[in-house]
Every structure is written in C-alpha cells, then in structure tokens.
Design a protein around this nucleic acid. Structure first.
Lengths: 340, 340
DNA sequence: ATTAGCACTCTCTAAAGGAGAGTGCTAACA
DNA sequence: TGTTAGCACTCTCCTTTAGAGAGTGCTAAT
C-alpha cells in the first residue's frame, strides 16, 4: 500500500469528515478543517490520485469525494486511532453486564441493549455456544409421561434446558435411575465431548440394556447434543433509521427484513467473525443485503466455556474509531467480570 | 346511530374502497364501482351529510373523502361482513399450530409468524400468563452455593424456570428436603393461589423453623410468584413498511421504536384486550404512537390454564374483514387443538 | 328528491431557471 | 518539479411556474 504521508493524511481527513457529515468531501473543506499546510489545489491532485487508486469515489462528476470500501479498509487497517472510553462508560458497562442476572440469556440480552445504546448502531448478539462448557449435573424433570424436561448445569454455573420427547412412557423411578446413570457417565465432560459421544460407548458398560432405555437415552443424549440453537438477540434495530443513508425506504426494508431472519443473520456473522475483533466492510460481507453496511464482530466469553460472538451493524460510513473502542471495552469488561 | 340504508351503503363503499386503494374516494368512483342506482351528485350529498356527522373526513378541500376513526368504528360494528377462510388457510393453521413443538414458547412464536404471514400486518403475541395453571411439581437444581435453579411443571405440562439467588449457602441435602417440603405445600395450587400465599401461612406447620430456611423459602416463593414476565413475540415487523401510510420515515420510526419496547407493547395490548376479539381503532388506542394504527386483539388458550392475548397491528385503514376472519380462524383452530 | 352542468379549489407533476459547490485544467511561480 | 491561483465547466438541488386532473359544492332543471 504505497501511500505517502500526505496521501494518508488526505485519505484520513476525507474518511473522518465523511463519517461525521455523510456529505461528499471537497478539497476546500479539507484545507479548511484539517491543517495539512497545502492549498486546495494540491489536495485536489492528491484526491484525484487516490480516486484512481481506488480509495475514493465520486458520487457524480464534479462532486466531492467519498471513500470507497477499499478506502474504508485502508482507514481501518492503517489510519484510525482508537480513542479511549470515558470512565462513565466503563462504569456503565460494568454495571449493566455484572452478573446479577439469572441466566446467560439475560446477560446476552443486556449486552445487545448496551452496545446499541452506546454506539447508536444496531447490535446483534449470537447466543453463546456451550461446547467448551463442562457439564456438572443433569436433572430430569418429568413433565408428562412422554416428555422430560432436561436441565443441565455447567461448570460455570450456567443453565441450559430443553424439552425432550421420548418414544415411550417412563416411570418416575426409572427416571431417577436414568438421571443418576447419565450423571455418572457425562458429568465432567465438555458439551463438545458429549456431542462426540455415541450411544454405543455409553451402552458399553450399561447394566440394564433394555431396548426402551436405549431409545430414551438416545433422545436425552440428543437433547444435550443440540447446540443452544442459533438464538439471535438484537438491540437498537431502529437505530439504522437515524442514518442518512437509510432515508431510502427500500434500503430500510432490505435490512430490516434481513434482521428478521435469524438464521441468515447468524450465518452472516459466523462467516465473518474471527478470533478477536474483526471488521467487514460493505461488499466484503457475504450477504448482498449487507453490501451497504459494515459489520464489526467480536468474540465474547462468559466464563465456564461459554463463548459467542456479537456484532455492530451500521452503514459503511460508520464511526469505526468509536465502535472499535466500544467493542474492545465490552470485551475487556466481560473478561474482567467472567474471565478465567 | 341513525343512518338510513343508503348512507350505510355509501359509508360501506367508501371504507371498503379506501381500504383497498388508500386513496381518497370520490363520488364518481363510488357510483362507478358500487351499484347504488343513484348518480354521483346524490352520493355527494350523502357524503356531505356523513362528513358533517363525523364519519368521513376530507384530507383537503375538494378531494375525495376518507373514513374518520368514527367511520371505521361504525363500519366495524355494523357494516362489515366477515368472509370465510379458504380450506388451504385452515389447513395451514392446523399444520403450523399443531403441537409437535416442545414448549408453549415455540407455539406462541409460530403463532406470531403465522398471523403476520397470512395478514400482511404485524403480529404481536403476548406470552401466556400461567396464573390459572396448577403447579404439579417443583424441582430445585443447585447451581452454585448461593444460586438455585427453580423448575416448575404445571398441570398442562408446561415448564417455568427461574434462577433464584438465596441469601445463604445451602447444602444439597437440605435442598432436597426443601424441595419435598415445597411440593407438599404447593403442589396442586394454581399459580394465582401461590401468589396469594404468604410465608406466614406456610410456616404455620413448618417443622423446622430455622431462620435461614425462612429466608430461603422466602426467595423461592418469590421466584414462583413472579409472573412469567411479559414476554412479547413479534412477527412481520417489516410488514408495516408495505403500507402506503407508512411511507413517511418519521411514522415508521415511531412505530418501530414502540415495538422495541416490550413493556409498552404489553401494556397497550393488555389495556384494549377483552375476553374475545376486540378492535381498537386509531385514537381509541391508549398509546399516542398508535393513533394512526388499529389493533385487533384476541384471547388465545393453550390448554392447561394457559391463557394469553395476541394482536394484529396495522394502519387504521386495515382490512378489518380479512383480519377478523383470520383472528377468528386462529382462535377456532387453537381451541380445536388445545381446547378443553 | 334527484340529477346535470359548471365554475372553482386544491394537489401533483414536469419543466425551467438559478444558486452553490466542487472539479479539472492551464499557466504562473518558487 | 512540485505547488498554487484563477477560471470555465458540470452537476445537483431548490424554487418557481404552469398545466393537467380529480373532485367538490352550488344552482337550476327535472
């Protein structure tokens, strides 16, 4: 990326200005607002170069320039300076996220609200996957003769529950036995390991091996294996309406309809999310409905092996500096609260 | 409501036409499309009368007429004719709502999707209140030394769960005792009755009355008393974007922001909802954000004492005939599937 | 009581004109 | 050679204007 210092300055100025004003940036504006020590004409030349190199675009002939996706990419990778959060904001995060809540679900819901409120963008939180969590205990609650409510408690003190339909009726005593047996076999394993466990292995040293039990265990095991299937939590959906680029109803519809499709959203985020924080700009996004948007994704950890992803969704013209600071702050806070 | 036959016909024609076209209706249009056997001039006179009586409005001088809230009200109360659903639609309802699902939550979620898909409006379903349900069994699952996961199973086979924080640590054996004791005291009561139960009553014949236990029981009881707090399920939120009256971004924002506030939505619906089906038109709605909207609410029953409300939200110009047919159909279907 | 005829009102759309912002080019300058 | 001032040109956006269209209310005739 051979951009000399002044080109970088100009690019930074344009991206920075455009992020705030949402209006194409002209050479005069830059020379007025940013102290580059050169005249508008010089800046014009630089801009012309930057456009040719693909970092800028012109909405129409003889308008100011706006950053292209590539321009944003360079900005994000090399130019931006992440500010620090205020103490109040950090306090707020700690307060809101601190575990006075009953379940992971509630934390995650709070997280979505918090992120959207602080950023003014739309927050998306993918429910935690629990594959790394260790199962401490299983409890089987009889609901009807053919339904069992499965409650698992993980090492980290988080609860997962699921209704399991069994093929044949079972009595309460047998259930107690089953429960004990499952606990003996599975307690201490991570959910990942449990997923990999086959019935055959369990059966190996099963005392009684009645067919019915087999079927029931199979179902229960299935219940434990299922991932906390793709729940998606949204916060600040309406925030996109504040963005001038979404004053077009058609665009609003596109994105809101997308957000209604949990499965799609999950997919889209899972695809771009990496280990730490990552940024996906405009057409870098897999979904074409998101080609006008940027997605900042990050990994969160709730302790006890609970790991998931969250994201902030905004226009490509989103305030990356601010958002990255926020995301980092939230990750830090969560780590501090629930970290090893 | 002294409206002679022709005035009723004219009013019906105008409402009916406006619901379909969203354009002010003129006298010529009526005489062309509806066979009233009179000339436009006559209709004009009737319209003038109807306007004076408050059933119609003119968006501006010399435009066609549109119904006022009062006009819609009269239409809904006296004029409309609810059509019947097609067999396919009824089949679809049965299929989608039939209980192959594990929990009430899932049924309710399906219900929201179904309603919005069939009506093209926004569906709101309030989670079932369980006050009428009888508690069959309580199970206490230890999570940490100070946290207990409370699982209740109701008569109807539905599960409610909640994390309870207790003031002092308690051992597993004591927990087992507590559980047994709670079951003895509370099983068979409706949640409503449990809510009305005070600790003092329970304590009355409590064998051991150690202070600690007292505190713990208090918390657990509190957990059971909490209502399955106002969960709101939405379907087809973006459907309002299809309505021409919501081509104005400001209005869209107002209503979408409202829909993000579960508590407000719950309140608004609970206020207008009655025993059966009820219609709340425009300014009849308690929330001013809904003054451009109508709300069709109805009660649903999932069996086992589970009762709740659902609603369809659309512009005041919504297709009442269609929507009422749908709502009735859904109620019937649910009754058929889960009825006493 | 109903209807035809007609002038009038109001909105909506398209076209036209002008202001404003910004560019690219050229020529001068350090 | 890089930088800058000057200037003509382009394009959008806003406002104004004019005309078409739809619908009304009134009057007079049936």
């Amino acid at each position: 990326m051979g951009l000399d210092k002044r080109k970088r300055q100009v690019l930074y100025a344009i991206v920075h200005d455009y992020i705030q004003t949402a209006e194409p940036v002209g050479s005069r504006t830059i020379s007025r607002r940013y102290e580059l020590g050169v005249s508008p004409a010089t800046i014009r030349n630089e801009m012309s170069d930057l456009e040719e190199m693909g970092y800028l675009e012109q909405p129409y002939t003889s308008a100011g320039r706006i950053p292209s996706d590539r321009g944003y990419r360079f900005y994000v990778d090399f130019l931006l300076r992440v500010p620090s959060l205020t103490l109040q904001e950090i306090e707020l995060m700690k307060r809101v996220l601190s575990l006075r809540m009953s379940s992971a679900e509630e934390i995650v819901q709070q997280l979505a609200k918090l992120l959207s409120a602080l950023s003014n963008y739309t927050a998306i939180v993918l429910g935690p996957s629990q594959v790394q969590a260790r199962l401490r205990q299983v409890q089987l609650v009889p609901v009807s003769s053919r339904q069992i409510y499965l409650v698992g408690v993980t090492d980290g003190g988080l609860v997962l529950n699921r209704m399991v339909e069994i093929p044949v009726a079972v009595e309460v005593e047998s259930l107690a036995y089953l429960q004990q047996w499952l606990n003996q076999r599975l307690a201490g394993l991570t959910l990942e390991q449990i997923k990999a466990t086959s019935l055959a292995e369990l059966q190996h040293d099963m005392r009684i091996s009645i067919d019915l039990f087999e079927a029931i265990v199979n179902e229960l095991l299935g219940g434990l294996k299922q991932p906390e299937a793709g729940k998606v939590y949204l916060g600040g959906t309406t925030n996109i309406l504040n963005q001038p680029e979404f004053h077009d109803l058609q665009k609003v519809r596109t994105i809101l309809e997308l957000l209604e499709e949990d499965a799609l959203v999950w997919e889209a985020i899972a695809q771009v999310a990496g280990k730490g924080v990552s940024v996906s700009i405009g057409t870098e996004n897999p979904l074409s409905a998101m080609h006008d948007c940027s997605l900042i994704t990050a990994e969160y950890q709730l302790g006890g092996g609970l790991v998931g992803h969250f994201a902030l969704l905004g226009p490509t013209r989103m305030n990356y500096e601010r958002v990255l600071a926020l995301v980092q702050g939230v990750c830090d806070t969560l780590n501090q609260l629930y970290g090893m």
